[in-house]
């Protein structure tokens, strides 16, 4: 008889490929996502670049400062779409079929998570291109761009993992959407528009300190503005993102196990 357990890597590959195909077949969902993140870059740059003349910026280019915000916020559409894809699978019964295959539950959730992460990395690539077009200068050079993309990759996995986990708990589109609202405090209770030193409110300083996204912003800004002279913020950024990935992906795999088995 023709059956055996597939292996984890080939299962993950097959699942990811399928998720990518379904994304590509729904261009009306992913094209607006691409457009909106570039739009934000334009708007932030046009509206806020005057802030860069403040002494705390030490002459840094505001575009390099705001670019990470544009990339991180792109996750809501790109990586967050992974959760929406999962709700769709739950609705049309395909998810049950996946659970009935011998694939590991981790491989099942990694498909949409990796596809969502790739979407975010492509978005980030486009945002950086638009940035160069607007006059972006990257102190870290080509390697600096690579580091920004690697951080984006980590952030994409973490956010997609979170959105898949929430979708599996919520089991419907509305609640899954509601779950992505965590994004707003994450992105705005941070050093989003001004550096840490310029934050006025004490509570916002506290929030920014415990918010993992702050470390992501700092790591990206370090390579973009100062290059590799001080590597600690970069390393810290990778550590924070790695921990975040481990937490959210575990959350999604555990939720997959429970998705159908509970109540």
């Amino acid at each position: 008889m023709n059956k055996q357990q597939g292996n984890f890597f080939s299962d993950t590959l097959v699942m990811t490929k399928r998720s990518i195909v379904t994304i590509l077949r729904n261009p009306l969902i992913f094209i607006p996502n691409l457009a909106i993140s570039m739009f934000f870059l334009f708007v932030y740059e046009a509206g806020l670049s005057g802030i860069a003349n403040l002494p705390a910026f030490e002459g840094a280019n505001y575009l390099a400062f705001i670019l990470p915000v544009s990339i991180v916020s792109a996750a809501i559409g790109g990586a967050g779409g992974a959760g929406q894809a999962l709700v769709k699978d739950l609705d049309n019964g395909f998810f049950s079929r996946l659970l009935l295959t011998p694939s590991s539950r981790l491989a099942i959730v990694l498909g949409p998570i990796i596809a969502g992460m790739l979407q975010l990395v492509i978005q980030a690539g486009l945002i950086i291109c638009v940035g160069f077009f607007l006059g972006l200068e990257v102190a870290g050079g080509a390697w600096g761009v690579v580091v920004v993309l690697l951080l984006t990759l980590g952030w994409g996995l973490a956010f997609a993992g979170y959105s898949v986990g929430v979708a599996l708990r919520a089991k419907n589109a509305q609640s899954a959407q509601a779950g992505t609202f965590i994004f707003f405090p994450l992105i705005f209770l941070s050093t989003t528009f001004v550096p840490y030193e310029l934050i006025d409110a004490a509570w916002l300083k506290v929030a920014a300190t415990i918010n993992p996204v702050t470390y992501l912003f700092e790591a990206m800004r370090t390579v973009l503005i100062d290059g590799f002279t001080d590597t600690w913020p970069i390393v810290l950024g990778f550590i924070v993102i790695a921990v975040l990935c481990a937490i959210t992906i575990t959350f999604s795999a555990v939720s997959a196990k429970k998705a159908v088995s509970t109540d």
Binding site: V21, T22, R25, G93, F94, S96, R97, L100
Partner: peptide, 11 residues
């Protein structure tokens, strides 16, 4: 084969 079919309509 469950009561509800399990098919991804995009494939």
């Amino acid at each position: 084969a469950l009561q509800e079919t399990g098919i991804d309509p995009d494939l």
